[in-house]
Amino acid sequence: MRNRNATAYRFLTPYLLIFAVFWVWPIISSFLISFQATRTVPWRFAPAFNWGRLIGDPAFFNALKNTLLILVIQVPVMIALAMVMAVLLNSPLLKARGLYRFAFFAPVVVGEVAYSAVFRLMFNLNFGIINKLLNSVGLPSIDWFSNVTPAMALIMIAVTWRWAGYNAIILLAGMQSIPEDVYEAATLDRVSKLKQFFFITLPLLKPVIVFCLVLSIIGTMQLFTEPFLITERGGPGGGTETLGLLLYRQGFRSLNFGYASAVAYTMAGLAIAITLVQLWLTREKQ
C-alpha cells in the first residue's frame, strides 16, 4: 500500500510543485507582505503601516461600501431571477428547451472585454439602445456613466446578466434531482403548483441555493471586471470602485504591494465570514 502511495505521489509531484510555487507561496508571501512597508527600499516590517492605514482609509471604506451594496442587492435579485429561469427551463410546457438552456448559459462563455464593450454601447447616453427604449416609453435618458446611482445599477445589471443563467443551470440540476413522485403525491393531496413550489421545491433546493449564494458572494467580493471595463476603473469618481479594483489600483498602479495584500486578505476574510454567517443561518435545524 505504501509503495502504491509513493508511486501516486511521484505522479503528483509536478502538479504539487506548481501548486506550491504559484498558489501556496503567493498566499503565504502576500500575507507576510501585508505586514511590510513596501514603499520604502528595502521593505521593512511595519504591521501598522498597511493594516493601520486600512482602518482609516476612506478609499477602502468607499470600496467596501460599494462591494457590500452590490452584494446585498445584486446577489439576491440574481438568485431569484435564476430561480425563475430554472423553473421555466424545468417546465414540461417549454418548447426548444436546449435553445433556452444555451441562451441562458451563453453569457458565461462570452469574453469579458467583448461583453463590457457591448454594455457600454447599449447604455451610451446618446445612441445606446437602453436610453432609446426609455425615451420610447416617455422616460428621460439616463447618464449611466456620469452618476453614481445609475453607474452602480449598471454594474449590477451587467453582473446579473452574466451570471444569472449560470446559477439557473445549477438550480435546474437541483430541481431535476427532486423525484417526480413527490410532486405526484402532492398533486393527489390537492396541493396547488404554487404551493408545491414554496413548500416542496424551495425547501428541497435549499442546499443548492446555498451553494449558489456562496459562489455568488465569493464572486462579488472579488468583483473587478465590470467596474474596471464598463464604468471605467470604478467611475464616476470612485462611485463604483470595488475592493477588487482598489486592490488592483494599489498593487499594480501604485505598486503598493503591502497595502494591496492587506486589502486582499480583508476581502478573503469578509467572504469567509459572510459565507459562514449565511451557512449558519440556513443550517439544517434538527
Partner: peptide, 16 residues
C-alpha cells in the same frame, strides 16, 4: 386527481 376520491401509495414512498 385530487377530486377522484383516491389515495395512492408509491413504490418509492414519495415522502416529503
Amino acid at each position: 386527481p385530487a377530486d377522484r376520491g383516491i389515495a395512492m401509495v408509491f413504490q418509492s414512498y414519495a415522502l416529503y
